[in-house]
């Protein structure tokens, strides 16, 4: 394989891996669904149903502690509100939107992909692509570069080491 083509192929493969990976990560990781085995007697909406939504929300009073485990009174009220809304038949999306509209986007664990927030989603991807491009061009240049004096004549120490190990193994296998 010619170096330039090899480098290009590697670039494509890496890009493809990243894309496939991103797709997997978008659909693949299911948040383990909370399960409650015995339906609880009193409330129509169980704590688990509330927590399933609350775990992805943040109450500004407890910085960086998800709403489902934040112990403050304010958070308890918020969870009750989620329970009320669920009882009224709202779904997760509606409840998240309601809270975001009321208390600003900071209550959401993932900023909605709109407006300026797109920067958060596109920015790193672009930088990553730039990085891939940089690696690609570097590799291309380095592979093309005329060798600085008989490349294969300068095996690094560890290659020597691996070679010796391989040789040793081969001999061993022959003897067996």
């Amino acid at each position: 394989m010619r170096p330039a083509r090899a480098a290009r192929a590697a670039g494509y493969v890496l890009a493809a891996c990243l894309i496939v990976g991103l797709v997997f990560s978008a659909f693949g990781v299911p948040r383990a669904a909370a399960q409650s085995e015995q339906p609880s007697p009193t409330p129509v909406i169980s704590d688990d149903q509330v927590n399933a939504i609350a775990r992805d929300m943040y109450c500004p009073i407890c910085d960086n502690i998800p709403l489902d485990v934040c112990p403050t009174a304010a958070c308890a009220e918020w969870r009750e509100q989620i329970r009320t809304k669920l009882a009224e038949g709202w779904d997760r999306k509606q409840i998240e939107e309601f809270f975001a509209l009321r208390f600003s986007d900071r209550v959401l664990s993932l900023p909605p992909a709109r407006g300026l927030n797109l920067l958060l989603y596109i920015g790193p991807a672009l930088i990553l692509l730039a990085g891939i491009a940089a690696v690609y061009f570097t590799v291309k240049k380095l592979l093309k570069k005329p060798s600085a004096g008989g490349q294969t004549a300068e095996p690094a120490r560890e290659d020597e080491y691996i070679r010796r190990v391989e040789e040793e193994l081969r001999r061993r296998e022959r003897e067996k």
């Binding site: 990243l18 496939v20 990560s25 978008a26 664990s109 993932l110 900023p111 300026l116």
Partner: peptide
Amino acid sequence: YPIVAELVTGNKVTVGPRYYELATPPLFLG
């Protein structure tokens, strides 16, 4: 990003675990 968002829009946002759980797994696997 939250610092930038607050500067531009005046409102805070939270970039929580969901963001990193979305973006980092392929890189870790790599």
